[in-house]
Design a protein around this nucleic acid. Structure first.
Lengths: 209, 209
DNA sequence: GTTTAATTGAAACATACGTATGAGTGACAC
DNA sequence: GTGTCACTCATACGTATGTTTCAATTAAAC
C-alpha cells in the first residue's frame, strides 16, 4: 500500500486548482509529487481518469454533507427556514475549502468551467443537489414563479462559486480588507445576502409591443 | 486594409469561448478563419498578444459603457438609487453578450481561467470599475461596514459572472424554463436580487473565545 | 512600368505533451 | 531459494503545439 496514489492526487488537486486542468501537465504533477511520470498512468489509466478521481475525492463528501445538513434542517420541528437551506448548500463547500488549502480554487474552477467537461461533472454531482434543494427552497416558504426561482438559485450558486474562484486573491484584491480565515463568517455573509435576494419582491414585467 | 486581422479575431473569440484559451490552437483558429497560420504571428506577435487583443476588443467597450451609465445615473437630479448603480454594472455586459453570440462564454472563460492570466486581465479592466462603483454604492445610500460592502460587491459580481459562464447551457439546464432572448429581463432579475442582498441587515457577529 | 513595402504562403523548427514499453526492484508466499 | 506479484523507473514513441523562416504574391507610390 503505497501513498504514491495519494501524493499524485494531492499534487494534481493543487496544480489543477492553480493552473487549470488543461494547462497542468502530468509531468508537472509527477514532479510536484516527487513520483515517476509513468505512475500516473499505472495507478489511473489516463489524465482524464485522474481528473475524475481528483474531483470524486473532494466533491463526493461535500455533496453528501450538503444533503445531510438539509436532512437535519428539514427534520427540525421549529420548521425549515430559508437561511437553513442556503447554509446547507454553502457551508459544506466553504468549510471543506478552509480545511484543505488549494481546494477552493479547484471547486471554483469546476463551477465556473463550461462546456463538455462541466456537463460531465456537473450533471454527475449537481443533479442530486438541485433536485433536493429546489423543493426545499419552496418548502422553506419561498413563493416565486418557477422561472424566477430558478434564476435566483442560479445567482446564488454564482455568488458561492465566485467566492471560491477568487479565494486565493481575495485578500490582495480587497487590499487586506477581506480575509478568509473564518469560514463561518463568510457563510453567514453569503446566507444573509442570498436570503434577502431570494425574498426580494418579484419585478413586474411591463408588456412589450 | 485586409480583414484578415478581423477574421482571426472573430474566429479566436468564438473558439476561445467554446474551448478555452489554452485548448484552442492557433491552427484551429486559422483554419476556422480560413487564413494562413503565419498570419496570426504577423498581425499579432504571439498567441498571448492575440488573447489580449480579443479581450480588449470586447471588454473595452463594456467598461466604457459601464462608467458612462454610472455617470448618467449620478447626474440624475432625482438622486442615485442602488438599483441604478447595479444596473449600470450589469446591463452593459449582458446587453453586449446578447448582441454578440459567443461573447458570453468568452466572458465566462475569463472568470474560469487561472491565476496569473486572470490577475492580468481582471486588474487591467476591473480596477477602474471597482474604484468607481464602490463609492457609487455608498453614495446611493448603502450603509455598510467597508468589509461587508466589499464582500457583497463580490457576491454581486459572482452572480453576474455565473450568468455569463452558463449562458450557453442555461436553457438546457433549466429544462427550457429559463431563456436568454430577453436581456432586459435578466438584468431586471439580477438587479432585484442584488439590491435586496445589498440591503440585507448586517449579520451580528458573535464574539469568539 | 518599375520600385517598394505590406501581406500571404508552404514548410520547417524546437519543444512539450499524453501515453506506452520493458527492464528493474522490493516484499511476501510457499 | 524461487516464484509471483505490485510497483517504480528510465526511456522512447507519435503527435500537436507556438513560433520562425524565407520565397511568393499583392498593392501602393512615384
Amino acid at each position: 500500500m503505497s501513498d504514491t496514489k495519494t501524493r499524485i492526487l494531492d499534487a494534481a488537486e493543487q496544480l489543477f486548482g492553480r493552473n487549470g486542468f488543461e494547462s497542468t501537465s502530468l509531468r508537472a504533477i509527477t514532479t510536484e509529487a516527487q513520483v515517476n511520470l509513468a505512475a500516473v498512468n499505472y495507478h489511473f489509466q489516463s489524465k482524464d481518469a485522474l481528473i475524475d478521481a481528483v474531483l470524486e475525492r473532494r466533491i463526493g463528501p461535500v455533496t453528501r454533507r450538503r444533503l445531510e445538513m438539509l436532512d437535519v434542517a428539514e427534520a427540525d420541528p421549529a420548521g425549515l427556514t430559508l437561511e437553513k437551506v442556503i447554509e446547507a448548500f454553502a457551508a459544506p463547500v466553504v468549510e471543506a475549502a478552509m480545511g484543505q488549502p488549494g481546494l477552493a480554487p479547484l471547486m471554483g474552477r469546476i463551477m465556473a468551467t463550461p462546456g463538455a467537461f462541466l456537463e460531465r461533472v456537473f450533471l454527475r454531482y449537481m443533479e442530486a443537489v438541485k433536485s433536493r434543494f429546489l423543493p426545499a427552497l419552496l418548502r422553506s416558504g419561498v413563493r416565486l414563479p418557477p422561472e424566477e426561482l430558478f434564476w435566483r438559485l442560479h445567482f446564488m450558486v454564482g455568488s458561492l462559486a465566485h467566492v471560491l474562484v477568487f479565494a486565493p486573491v481575495m485578500p490582495a484584491m480587497s487590499n487586506g480588507l477581506c480575509q478568509l480565515n473564518d469560514g463561518r463568517a463568510i457563510v453567514n455573509r453569503l446566507v444573509a445576502f442570498c436570503a434577502a435576494g431570494m425574498r426580494a419582491p418579484v419585478e413586474q414585467m411591463e408588456k412589450e409591443a
